[in-house]
Each structure stands twice: as C-alpha cells, then as structure tokens.
C-alpha cells in the first residue's frame, strides 16, 4: 500500500519537526517554512495528498496561501487543514470558507491529529 504524502507549512521549525516526526510513522511528510517554499514545492511537481497550513506566518499568511492553492486547478482538489494558535470563530469561518476541510487549534493531541488526517484521506 502506497503511503500518503502530507505537506506541512509552518514557520516554526520546532513545530515542523514535531509534526513530521509524529505523522512520519503513518505518512510521508514534506515540510515548508513559509508559503513561498510551499508553493515552490508544489510547482516543482510534488503532489501531496493533504496539506496542513499554519495561519500566522511572517510574509504570506495561511489564508493567502490557502486561497492561492484553492484557486489553482492543479491543486484545488487536495484537502487542506488549517492549523492555528488563534482560537477565534471568525478565523475558523474564514478558513472553512476558503476551502479548508478542517480547522485545528494548537495545542492539540498529536495522535488524534494523525487519526483525523487518516480519516480525511480515506
């Protein structure tokens, strides 16, 4: 069985390392430190099965990245999960409207997160 590929976009190296380690047991994990790096990876031919995007990032934030991805016919079908430290219903609404399938607030249980991603991929 082919392992699913997950792309994680987060400005914090520690978070990237944490998620990569925990999801790495079930999935193949790609990481990007900012929106630009993520877009570069997608353009260079990476075809992730799911993308996890942190909302607050320096430079282009998660919302802008989401709308870019959802606006591109090549990747718009890829499910996208938003990750944030901000617990505001407005942001949640905004993320879901932009096309995210889920919206997860930090801190969260890593095992549950991995299960949730597994379910989303089925």
């Amino acid at each position: 069985m082919k392992r699913h590929v997950i792309l994680i976009v987060d400005d914090s190296a520690n978070i990237r390392r944490l998620l990569a380690h925990n999801l790495g047991r079930k999935f193949t994990v790609l990481t990007a430190g900012d929106a630009a790096a993520a877009l570069e990876m997608l353009d260079s031919g990476e075809k992730p099965d799911l993308i996890v995007v942190d909302i607050s990032m320096p430079g282009m934030d998660g919302f802008s990245l989401t709308s870019l991805i959802k606006g591109n016919p090549d990747y718009c079908a890829v499910p996208l999960v938003m990750l944030t430290a901000k617990d505001s219903s407005e942001d949640r609404e905004k993320g879901l409207q932009l096309g995210a399938v889920d919206y997860i607030t930090k801190p969260f249980n890593l095992e549950e997160f991995a299960d949730r991603i597994g379910m989303l991929l089925q």
């Binding site: 914090s12 520690n14 978070i15 944490l18 607050s56 430290a85 901000k86 801190p107 249980n109 890593l110």
Partner: peptide
Amino acid sequence: STVSHELRTPLFSILGFTGTLLR
C-alpha cells in the same frame, strides 16, 4: 490575545515533544 498566541506556540512544542518522548 497576542500574548496568549505567543505563549501557545512554545507550549504546543513542549507538550508535543514531551508527549512524543513519553510515548
């Protein structure tokens, strides 16, 4: 709101890695 956001990020890291180490 900013403070809580700033606190959550390192806290999430600490929680995540300690959880991983324990597990």
